[in-house]
Design a protein around this nucleic acid. Structure first.
Lengths: 204, 204, 204, 204
DNA sequence: CATGAATGAGATTTCATTCAT
DNA sequence: CATGAATGAAATCTCATTCAT
């Protein structure tokens, strides 16, 4: 189960951390954070449970690193999109595409984020999740409202409802998406966008 | 549909059971099944942890009853819709509307179902979740394919992708929906259907 | 090892706590706080380690309760002495006597206090130990200085040195004192006071 | 006196060992032996925990070396005093003075000895602590009794009580003494002796 | 000499569950 | 019906120690 098993040379610290975090993320995503014991993570990493504590303070800090690394990367991409001066429809398309790419790269982290973030919001350590959610809403809802104002998006829909619809629609995909499947992230994004923008009904 | 119903301690007052199950469902939905201790449920119910065992066999059997009661009711409605001989579009509209009504009635149960069913599928006691999922897929995917065949739904979209899109789109709503909010379930269903069927882009 | 073994009837909560705290205090005093495992406490109390957590939050909170109960009682006695308007010598005699009585009543707590308080001072939870130490110094040093001013105590000794000498001299006794031995606390206090006040050398 | 000296890993540089032992002694004295992790010692020495094992067999052997070095030196001085044929009062004065000098030189070791020796007595490796204690009692108690017999010390005090009083009085000073403070060890010894021999009360 | 990584034993703590009252 | 007290299994975490490099 250890990745790169052909390269058993001792890796310099940061790479080993990454490996272990990737392993932990897979297990968290598959079983849920609470149902995952550190022993399961250690098993998957081929070491003893106690040995994980050489690399990490606690099970919680692993979760923390996984989620914050994911959000850091996501926001780097989102910010690039938002700074590029696109119109609302192109912005929406770019955000959706980046989201599916992020699911492709960090599937486990996204799945964990989906499942656990809600009851993590309360804990001080994870306040950044709430901050991120607020920025997220601002970016997406803003884009939608800009689109309504410029008449590229329908004005007869409740904007917050549409926002939630879009947001959930995209991220829930992490629960079934498998990297290396038959559709590339860009292809999935294209189909999703087609459904969301044009609808699934045949036009008369 | 509740398994092991012959093994469940018979409690003289069924209303008290319902109350306690509703309380448990709220806590499960808010914190996640694994993160919920029986003590938390007991606190919310104003009793001590041990006292719950007069009413229920185990924490797991509470979860079981909550989920099976929800699925029993859902399938009663779905079956009525599916038996009524509607066309694909009307069937889809009816299924979506019933789904939002179910979210309205059993929000906590739906949220639990969303979050927990994936890793419950393995355990024998919860095999009925897998059965239900299979029936679910058959009903929705069948309706979609009937619609494609009769040219009311677009033929250029991957059907399984569309199915997952629709399914997620509807049920994820349980994570933010609050009964008694500004929109009735029927109104939410109408807007969701409008987005899904017609798209959010303005038609030229 | 459980005290009152003849009275095995289930005791109402606060008495059981007291029993367990007394047991814990004995073990802490005998082995040191850090070297004492909760399993040892539980063994001494005739229960399993986990069962202690029904009564107490943590091993640390047991220590906390033991120390604060001891200090509460000590200060009740000291305050009574200090409020009674005695002269410096009588005050000193009364303080020493109350101290030995306290050692007689709470020997284990005093021994723990002696051994552990120094490295506990840093932790926020035990800040009250520092407060108590400050009050302690004020009471004893004040009495000594009053005595020097009124010429009942020698003026040629460094007061702070005398204070530490007295303080340690009294409390260290907890490390060898055994209640029910050949000397009553009052008798020990009398001999200590005689040594401290008159010296051990024969007067010419 | 260091036990197992043939088993100790031979380190090329004895000065480094001394440095490390001094560092370890400081940490043991400040935090207590049990509460001190080898990582804390290594941190204080600017190395990693594992590296200490190049110099020492175990944490326990560090403690062993610290305590036995201290006792070796102490007994060299005590023996010189006891062999010099002084009278009881002069002997007592010399022993007290040498004790404070030892506190000045090996403050940390003395503090550790005070705090830890009680529960170390049981372990075979530290039996020499018990031997030392017995010799100690013989020397001090003998001096006191000689003094009582020759009428230089009061006969109306319990000798064992006096012995413990003296012993504690002197050694506890290690818990607050700081080398390089305003009083030299000889000055502190003089004041202590004055208190102990003449008392703190003004003579009429 | 020192590091980085791991081991393995054992410590504290959690928690579903039981049961006498 | 509910409480109070406990059990026992398992979880998280700690730490002295080892060892290849």
């Amino acid at each position: 189960m250890p990745k790169n098993s052909e390269k058993t040379t001792v890796s310099p610290s940061p790479e080993r951390r990454e490996e272990l975090l990737a392993t932990a993320a897979e297990v968290f995503a598959a079983q849920g954070y609470n149902a995952t014991t550190v022993r399961k993570i250690a098993d998957a990493a081929g070491m003893l449970a106690g040995s994980l504590y050489y690399h990490f303070d606690s099970k919680e800090s692993m979760l923390d690193e996984i989620l914050s690394a994911f959000l850091d990367e996501l926001w780097a991409r989102y910010d690039a999109v938002l700074a590029s001066g696109l119109g609302p429809r192109q912005t929406l398309e770019a955000l959706v595409t980046e989201s599916f790419r992020e699911i492709d790269r960090h599937r486990a982290a996204v799945a964990i984020y989906q499942k656990e973030s809600k009851h993590l919001l309360d804990e001080p350590r994870f306040h950044y999740l709430a901050d991120s959610q607020a920025r997220f809403e601002k970016a997406w809802l803003g884009t939608l409202e800009r689109g309504v104002a410029t008449q590229v998006f329908r004005a007869d829909l409740d904007s917050r409802l549409t926002y939630r619809f879009l947001r959930d629609t995209v991220w829930v995909a992490a629960s079934w998406y498998r990297p290396g499947g038959q559709h590339s992230p860009e292809e999935i994004a294209r189909q999703y966008l087609s459904m969301v923008l044009e609808g699934i009904a045949v036009r008369e």
